[in-house]
């Protein structure tokens, strides 16, 4: 590409530097200091006092919950999402874009509305039971199953999109060559198709993993407030204007994010194919 176009990136570099770097530095400072609305500039000190929050049992359990659910959601979304993406790729329906939009369309409806309606039909007496005469979900409202179901079916479209994008790039000639070499379809899939689409899986996994890890609305509504994620605690800290604690937890989450970005670069040396 013509080097002349470098200038096009300059505004974006400035934009990113200001809006990404400065807030991160500010967060780090807030989480290490006693800065708050009642403290004047002269009294500012650096301390590790806020770090005792990290040993609070609720914080540890919230982190554990977030991690377990994020991993489980990612694994399930991978299995189901890959299956759907593969079916879309194989489908005889020509216009794949329509199928993909169909997959992503539920995400255009408000998340809270969708989650609340899920919570409704998962409880004992609900509108579907009233119509159908039986309970589609049993009475799982408030349990981990409800939360897991909600998370998987909310974020799976990301997995489907990224896996499909990777699958689309695979050359059909390769598949045919594999078949010509006498590979059975299942073997062909594992030996040829899956490795080639793995980058898409990693991307999709990260796009499912992170919103699950940092989210707060879905677990709160579907667990009826009984399963606490780290996002719920951060939300509460910010609402009660305890920015020191909020920033600290946000920084910890940021570590996870940096970790996953490193993971991306490991699989994709240029870190450019998140999608």
């Amino acid at each position: 590409m013509n080097k002349e176009f470098k200038v096009l990136a300059v505004p974006y570099k400035v934009w990113l530097s200001i809006l990404v770097f400065i807030p991160i530095l500010a967060m780090l400072f807030i989480s290490f200091s006693n800065l708050s609305s009642s403290v004047s500039v002269g009294e500012l000190t650096l301390s590790l006092a806020h770090f005792k929050l990290l040993w609070e049992s609720s914080t540890i359990i919230a982190f554990r919950n977030s991690l377990i659910f994020a991993v489980a959601t990612t694994l399930i979304s991978f299995v189901l999402g890959y299956f759907i993406a593969y079916e879309i790729k194989l489908s005889k329906f020509k216009n794949k874009f329509i199928l993909l939009t169909f997959v992503i369309l539920p995400m255009w409806s408000n998340l809270i509305l969708r989650t609340e309606s899920l919570a409704n039909i998962m409880s004992e007496n609900n509108i579907l039971k009233n119509i159908l005469g039986f309970n589609l979900f049993g009475n799982i409202s408030g349990t981990w199953m409800a939360v897991l179901f909600g998370l998987v079916f909310t974020y799976m479209p990301f997995m489907i999109l990224s896996v499909y994008t990777a699958l689309e790039k695979i050359d059909f000639a390769l598949e045919e060559a594999a078949l010509d070499l006498g590979l059975r379809p299942i073997k062909k899939f594992w030996k040829v198709v899956f490795p080639l689409s793995f980058k898409g899986v990693v991307t999709g996994a990260i796009m499912v993993f992170l919103p699950t890890l940092a989210g707060f609305a879905i677990p709160k509504i579907l667990s009826r407030g009984r399963i606490v994620f780290i996002g719920n605690i951060i939300e509460q800290k910010f609402i009660y204007t305890n920015y020191n604690h909020g920033a600290l937890l946000a920084v910890v989450i940021l570590f996870f994010i940096l970790g996953s970005i490193l993971l991306i670069t490991k699989f994709d040396k240029e870190g450019e194919t998140l999608l």
């Binding site: 708050s36 609070e56 609720s58 359990i61 919230a62 606490v228 605690i233 509460q236 009660y240 204007t241």
Partner: peptide, 18 residues
């Protein structure tokens, strides 16, 4: 006091997370 509110918030979170 903000510290008391914080303590109450944490206490309730601890009860919820069991």
């Amino acid at each position: 006091h903000p510290d008391d509110i914080d303590a109450i918030n944490t206490m309730v979170q601890n009860v919820i997370t069991g």
